[in-house]
């Protein structure tokens, strides 16, 4: 019988710890599929960050390094500069990448560091139980914005793709979403392209993935997917922000 659907080799066969309805797991699968399909698992080094995905070194079958909060792009730089033929990716949440790690991501992008960044935007600090993230939408209630995010008090949400695309370093930047099958397929293409950009030595690539956190949003999984579709995409438009015409 022909196998039409299987676990990617790059994904370890153990249960994940993510909450029901969390899209971290889907994002992992997309990364693993890309490693399989491009045949690069053996020369890939992944960098886990600090957030709900802190221990995804258990899930990815490639060599993995756990980095301090926000520092994954600097750790990735150290690896890539040491092993130019390796494929290096970071997997970072929005608190990790856009708050504590802002300097590291901006400068890795500005240097055009030849790495791939998988950026999970769920508009919240998932792991530490639902505090405001730099990406939290206006009026969004979190445990540290109990009356909703007020721009006068808490500032405005950061659009990472738009901000980084003002730099010359990035070769490819795209924002995708995981709220339905069609968009998951597009997300898969983007992740694949990001790795191919790195394989071709073109420079910095980043895929921002709009993701759910049903637990800290106080929603069931379906409501959470609807929130991505109906609220998040409005502020975080999908599309390519750098490298639209890049052929790889």
């Amino acid at each position: 019988m022909a196998v039409v659907f299987d676990r990617p080799h790059a994904l370890v066969d153990i249960p994940m710890h993510y909450c029901p309805g969390c899209t971290h797991g889907i994002a992992h699968r997309l990364v693993a599929e890309a490693l399989d399909e491009l045949g690069i698992e053996g020369r890939t080094v992944g960098i886990s960050s600090v957030g709900c995905s802190y221990n995804n070194y258990f899930y990815f079958n490639c060599d993995m390094i756990q980095a301090p909060h926000g520092r994954a792009p600097a750790v990735a730089t150290g690896v890539k500069r040491s092993l130019p033929d390796s494929i290096v990716f970071t997997y970072q949440g929005d608190g990790d990448l856009a708050a504590i790690g802002t300097a590291e991501i901006v400068h890795a992008a500005a240097r055009g560091e030849n790495i791939t960044v998988i950026f999970i935007n769920n508009t919240i600090y998932g792991m530490t139980s639902g505090q405001m993230a730099p990406t939290t939408l206006l009026n969004q209630v979190t445990t540290t914005t109990p009356y909703g995010r007020d721009p006068k008090l808490h500032g405005n949400p950061i659009r990472v793709c738009e901000m980084l695309s003002t730099l010359k370093g990035p070769a490819y930047i795209e924002r995708v979403s995981l709220h339905d099958i069609k968009h998951i397929k597009k997300a898969k293409e983007a992740v694949r392209k990001a790795f191919k950009v790195q394989m071709a030595g073109k420079g910095f690539s980043l895929v921002e993935i709009l993701s759910t956190c049903p637990t800290n949003w106080g929603m069931n999984p379906l409501e959470a997917l609807d929130r991505v579709k109906n609220e998040m995409i409005e502020y975080y438009p999908l599309g390519v922000f750098a490298g639209e015409d890049l052929e790889v």
């Binding site: 080094v45 960098i47 390094i65 980095a67 301090p68 520092r71 600097a74 750790v75 990735a76 730089t77 150290g78 690896v79 890539k80 500069r81 040491s82 092993l83 390796s86 300097a103 590291e104 901006v106 400068h107």
Partner: peptide, 24 residues
């Protein structure tokens, strides 16, 4: 070899962390 002027000491030591992890 590689010389890289990092954006901060925080970044520099984490680049060290990466290169050391890679066995260098």
């Amino acid at each position: 070899g590689v010389f890289l002027q990092a954006e901060s000491e925080v970044a520099a030591i984490n680049m060290v962390y990466g290169a050391a992890s890679a066995g260098k």
